[in-house]
């Protein structure tokens, strides 16, 4: 992870900051420069509530290189209570019990690292409640 890219993404990965369109009130996560709903270009920064529900999920058994040591692991599409939908890992849970509609909270966790001497990447994961 290039340092500058990591820094650019801190507001979302660490603080859940969304851009709320001033014209139509749609929440965008990650922020966009133009609203895909109304084409508005003015936004207010607001932190999302850290709660939502699972829309769909799977267990990744063949992982990409940065997640090699973690498989198998669960990932899900989560609809946040504020509206945005996100893809994230599901943690502290057994896959057999997971179902569509499961309520989750977002927690700040370690996601991956860029090798022994590289950056450790943090971000959000879903924890069923």
């Amino acid at each position: 992870m290039p340092t500058a890219r990591g820094w650019r993404e801190y507001p979302q990965r660490y603080r859940y900051e969304a851009a709320v369109c001033k014209k139509c009130n749609k929440w965008h996560f990650p922020p966009r420069l133009i609203c895909d709903e109304c084409k508005g270009q003015e936004f207010e920064t607001k932190a999302m509530k850290r709660s939502g529900k699972i829309l769909t999920y799977t267990t990744i058994r063949v992982p990409p290189a940065p997640f090699k040591d973690q498989a198998p692991y669960l990932v899900a599409v989560v609809e946040m209570d504020d509206g945005p939908r996100l893809t994230m890992m599901v943690t502290d849970y057994r896959d057999k019990e997971l179902k569509i509609g499961q309520r989750v909270k977002l927690e700040f966790r370690r996601l991956s690292d860029d090798g022994d001497a590289g950056t450790i990447n943090y971000g959000y994961k879903a924890v069923p409640v």
Partner: peptide
């Protein structure tokens, strides 16, 4: 890459999630 891949999902994983939704 920034908002799907960063969080550990693979390409088969994305289609698998479409399959789960379609089956449901």
């Amino acid at each position: 890459q920034e908002w799907e891949g960063f969080n550990g999902v693979t390409f088969p994983g994305l289609y698998a999630m479409m399959a789960v939704a379609h089956m449901h």
